[in-house]
Design a protein around this nucleic acid. Sequence first.
DNA 1: CTACATGCAAAAGATTTGCTTTGCG
DNA 2: CGCAAAGCAAATCTTTTGCATGTAG
Lengths: 136, 136
Amino acid sequence: MPNLVEICLKKNIKLTNHRKIIAQIISESTDHPDVEELYRKAYFMNPKIGIATVYRAVKMFEDLGLIARHDFLGKGKSRYEVLEDDHHDHLIDITNNQVHEFFNAELENLKTKIAHEMGFELIGHKLELYCKPLKK
Amino acid sequence: MPNLVEICLKKNIKLTNHRKIIAQIISESTDHPDVEELYRKAYFMNPKIGIATVYRAVKMFEDLGLIARHDFLGKGKSRYEVLEDDHHDHLIDITNNQVHEFFNAELENLKTKIAHEMGFELIGHKLELYCKPLKK
DNA sequence: CTACATGCAAAAGATTTGCTTTGCG
DNA sequence: CGCAAAGCAAATCTTTTGCATGTAG
């Protein structure tokens, strides 16, 4: 489990107290929280934190490439997760909106191969599988 | 090239004049237009068309499963394309934001297989490759 | 006449920004 | 003191909605 605070320390990214709290909350989350949820938890830790600070912090982390922003199902709301060195994709259970992460090497190779065949170098990628549970 | 107007006729979906214009514009587009672009072109065809009608029309077509909505690069703006029976994915050239479509059977099979292995039935999926051109 | 579509403007929801204040070196 | 960060509220941007009007069958 990657800790955003440690990552920032390692990269010499200075964190203010407010940003440290926000980074910690993102790190501890396993459910791809949105800004509202981050704000609620940050507010609980320190009621002096405003929502604009949360927005500015996630934008900063995103620009630094430390977290990823998602908008599962195109609901128009950004949800965040710490970016680790490895890459993973997302499977969304549409019956309960739960997000499952997975990694598949074959898939990663195929992505790169397809891009190459089309004359491109793969920089980033996003794959979301929308599913419902198999009936037994 | 699929024509949304014809698809609607075939499915007994009644189109008003305004919706017919909007459907036609979507069909003729190859560049995944956003609402603003659709509205501009529709307005050119008939200045009595309001932007709310465009929003209502694309929502209707989307709910009917006739068009797909994308938000490439998470810019917060919806862009549309006619949904054909076949499925394709998107490769976005980040140097000029151009969208290239592609289809890869191996990839499609792999998606289904991964979902199954995780205990799910694949309903929908979205894959976007963000790339830059290979240097020669 | 009835039901649905539409225009317009207002509302809503997410995010950004301007400006002033705060806080830490 | 000096500068970045943060709070707050206003602004912005996309999309939705309420309501009165228009239109087709």
